[in-house]
């Protein structure tokens, strides 16, 4: 019994730690958890690998001959659009569903009853979702290159484009996290929380030039961050000027994070079932 008593006194939990190292431990543990979930889930293969390849092949075969695009090469035009759309269907959908499932699951209650910074939980998740994008981006680039896509703008712009895509994806994942904590459960998250991705990605320059759209729609389609980000990537990957679109995409990303991250963290903290 002596040993047991000593054991209890040795409790590390009596003096809770705070501060940056503590916050980083929380965020990195949450990130590791999410990475394990991503790697062990069949959804990675389905939505991270099969779906992007399917979209690339469908769009390039079905629309490739019919759509007139600037530069004339539809594959070169299409790929950046698919990249951004697959970020939505991958990381952003993953964050929304993951957060919504956690809220339902009871594991969030455990996290919230522990001395963990509430922001670190969500930061760990949104950051680790980048992994999903990296995996599917790699597959998309390989498939794209097979059917004729090339990084024509050189090495540095290509790297910059990938970085921009990841950052934009991170911003949208925060939006996904906000939707996930706001949803009443995984089912409503799936029904309501993901459906916006279709109009959001298609009402843009991602698949066809906006010039072909009716005027009233162009007002939206020319200015949506979807168009801005896709055009920025096109510029960087094709070697055409992209300066304004890159800056605008960065501004959108920062704006989305600044608005949705604090709201998501607050909602996560105050949520009571």
């Amino acid at each position: 019994m002596v040993a047991v008593t000593a054991d209890l006194r040795d409790s590390t939990a009596q003096a809770p730690r705070r501060g940056l190292p503590w916050w980083l431990t929380g965020a990195s543990e949450m990130a590791r958890r999410n990475i394990r979930q991503i790697l062990r889930s069949p959804q990675l293969v389905m939505f991270g690998l099969i779906q992007p390849v399917m979209f690339i092949l469908l769009f390039s075969v079905v629309f490739g001959g019919a759509v007139e695009v600037p530069g004339g090469d539809y594959t070169q035009y299409l790929l950046p659009g698919i990249f951004v759309q697959m970020v939505l269907f991958g990381s952003v959908a993953g964050t929304t569903m993951g957060v919504a499932m956690d809220m339902q699951d009871g594991i969030m209650d455990r996290f919230r009853s522990m001395p963990i910074s509430r922001s670190s939980v969500l930061v760990g998740r949104t950051l680790s979702e980048i992994l999903r994008t990296v995996v599917s981006l790699f597959v998309m680039v390989v498939v794209g290159m097979i059917i004729g896509f090339r990084f024509l703008g050189g090495f540095l712009p290509a790297v910059g484009g990938v970085a921009l895509l990841l950052f934009f994806g991170l911003a949208l994942s925060w939006l996904g996290a906000l939707i996930g904590v706001s949803a009443s459960g995984p089912q409503s998250a799936q029904q309501v929380g993901l459906i916006w991705m279709f109009p959001f990605s298609f009402l843009s320059s991602a698949f066809v030039p906006t010039a072909s759209m009716p005027d009233w729609l162009r007002v939206y389609a020319d200015h949506t961050p979807m168009t801005t980000s896709v055009d920025a990537l096109r510029g960087l990957f094709t070697g055409t000027p992209a300066g304004d679109d890159v800056l605008l995409t960065l501004a959108w990303s920062v704006g989305i994070i600044v608005v949705s991250a604090p709201l998501a963290v607050r909602k996560y903290g105050s949520r009571s079932r």
């Binding site: 939990a13 809770p16 958890r33 699951d105 009871g106 594991i107 209650d109 522990m114 001395p115």
Partner: peptide
């Protein structure tokens, strides 16, 4: 709340563990 959280353990009605891990 922070100090309380460092002192307690909670086992709720649903098993609050990660199923995939």
């Amino acid at each position: 709340a922070w100090r309380v959280r460092a002192t307690i353990g909670l086992t709720g009605q649903d098993a609050a563990v990660d199923r995939v891990m």
